[in-house]
Design a binder for these strands. Structure first.
Lengths: 219, 219
DNA sequence: CTAATATTCAATAGATCAATTGAATAAGCT
DNA sequence: AGCTTATTCAATTGATCTATTGAATATTAG
């Protein structure tokens, strides 16, 4: 049956993509890449893996078509091969949240403040930010900010937030964002800001989700 | 670092879901389940796997939260655990089509008639069908038709199409659909219908995609 | 040209996964 | 109760995957 072979081949190709995503570290790499282009050793550092190991994982992702790379000088820069990869990751996240009880519990335990933080939808933030009503705060590391961020956002990496609190206007509301819906940086930032009496909320989702909605990005 | 553990745990859970989808047979099972609820042996038959084997694959899918089951009498019926699982599969398909050159070639080779078949978008079909302008033809096996189909669709399984050609009205256009965008049944049906001079097109996507758009289903 | 940096390749051992087989459980039928 | 059907469990073998290590390649700097 040639049509059966077609079907098997096709599903095997789909499976190859899923297999590329079937490892925690590779998913972490994908999340970092969703923030912007990165070199191999930057990814190795941030993920805590060895360089050779990181390189091999990246190659698996590349063979599955999830990432692409370009060589500039001595460095090789990897990037997601498209927005649809971000969309795939978002789908995966959603299924996990809805149907994997463990994930739900984990998220509730760690981000138990979740509901009390009143996440701001992307569309609403865009309106209020362009009207100058809020300060948009990017709490990701500087390199991630530099390779793309929300329009008008200021960058104070979470690690430096305590020292640089004076940089934020205290009379405007702050909306913080980070890497994505399960990144703890924005959660923690909002808590820290509120501790010192600054009105703060977090964006629903992070930069990848913002891009997925087709909203503008500045760099 | 407790926040790092949280991240690792979370991504490991996501990876479990991807791992469940990282096997061709399991993806096939998911596509069949996207047509409706099925018992283990029905799935074993249609997938060509042994029953024990099928059962074990289904259990992996269940542990990943992708499917759910209920026991009725001596049979256990499995189903997708939600529409978001269909959405995840659709995302996977899209990434494969866009970024995996092999898939593109495979699809072009097999469904080379693809573009000439002028697929009908779901929204358009709904309008024209409710206006009585087209006959909607479901070419999937009878069991799949019975567990849910497009409103007003008639069912002639592809295998029986040749013998039952007389059942279709020759003066109305026919729109055929099957399991999904890469299922060959609707393609082949359209070709066969055109051979005998009947005006035919195919629906863009299949029943799962129809459901995903929130359109009504009859059973 | 030589040294240093960034990345990839190759080989290894330990772990996990897949398909098969036969037995065990559980529900209905006679 | 015994028999049949549907599903799951358990154990095996062969295959594939992961992390680590050290060497090989390529590009830039001195």
């Amino acid at each position: 049956m040639s049509t059966d072979n077609f079907k098997h081949d096709l599903f095997n190709h789909f499976a190859r993509i899923a297999k590329a995503m079937s490892h925690g570290y590779r998913l972490e790499l994908l999340e970092f890449l969703a923030q912007g282009e990165r070199s191999v050793d930057a990814l190795a550092q941030v993920s805590g893996l060895g360089v050779a190991n990181t390189s091999q994982h990246l190659q698996q992702l590349r063979q599955a078509g999830l990432v692409a790379n370009r060589k500039q000088g001595q460095k090789v820069y990897y990037r997601l091969s498209g927005l649809d990869v971000s969309a795939l990751l978002a789908s995966l996240r959603k299924v996990a949240e809805c149907h994997l009880a463990d994930v739900d519990r984990l998220v509730d335990d760690y981000l138990n403040i979740k509901d009390s933080l009143e996440p701001v939808p992307a569309g609403e933030l865009l309106k209020r930010a362009s009207a100058g009503l809020v300060t948009v705060l990017d709490v990701r590391p500087a390199e991630e900010y530099m390779s793309g961020h929300l329009p008008g956002a200021i960058n104070i990496p979470f690690a430096e937030l305590k020292k640089r609190l004076h940089e934020v206007e205290r009379d405007k509301e702050i909306v913080a964002y980070c890497r994505g819906p399960h990144c703890v940086l924005a959660f923690d930032a909002v808590v820290k800001l509120r501790e010192v009496g600054i009105s703060a909320r977090r964006l629903e989702g992070g930069l990848p989700e913002w891009k997925l909605e087709g909203l503008p990005v500045e760099s």
